[in-house]
Amino acid sequence: MSTQSTQTTGKVSLNSRRKFLLDSARAAGAASLVALGVGLYSRQSVSLPASAIRPPGALDEEDFLGACIRCGMCVRDCPYDTLKLATFGDKVTTGTPFFKARDIPCEMCDDIPCVKACPTGALDHSLDNIDDARMGLAVLIDEENCLNFQGLRCDVCYRICPVIDKAITLEMEHNVRSGKHAMFIPTVHSEHCTGCGKCERACVLENTAIRVMPYELAKGELGHHYRWGWKEKNEAGESLVAPDVEHQYNLPQGQSYDIQGEGLIINDRESDATPFGANPLETLNNNSLNAGGTK
């Protein structure tokens, strides 16, 4: 009687163990399918549309997506309704904050409330001066339509820039088209541009000629081995490659040339005499004779 009962319990436990393993395998299979789908989706969604700009102090995009918990508190504390949370189905990763400069640019608040609101530090709390923010970089992308490039004085992007004369300067150039006017070319300096997007918002064109772009799109990068020769030379006080050879002009005796100053200098008035005679015909004859001689 007792052996029979142990046999049946043994059978039951074997069955339940098999059922447990089967259930676990199915559950694990389902979970791996979910993981695969979500994982692939997450890799795709890392690419942020170029027009979507992260708030000030945002970590690099890859780190940001691991640090931002999608709570939207930065959005709430933005006094200008600049920041938006990406909704499900947006091109921007669901639930993460961004702004479009052409709609509402960043007003660069001195107290940076969005960064302070971030509970996780996805917006870096060490950013305490908004001028140090690098949300992106303004790029004058369409020289063909920019009014200043046509020689007009639009200057709106330059005027609106919160870091005027540092982040955007006007560089005077010759207007080749008219031949007699100047062009004032708006020029962005990455050293000072915060990527706030006010220039993009203000551009008077139908479709903006200047726009804020992510750094990796907007900025080139020098080969790490590369050095600007003149800067190195300035720093060192002398050329580092080879000693400077003073340029020699092969000029007639008594003459020299100053490239940055007076130009041709004739030292000796006495030696004004040319090897050529006063009579040009004679000279010609001499030359042709010489040429004939060599022939």
Binding site: G39, S42, L65, T93
Partner: peptide
């Protein structure tokens, strides 16, 4: 992935 993938 380095990102909070499930939140997608």
């Amino acid at each position: 992935t380095g990102s909070i993938a499930w939140e997608l």
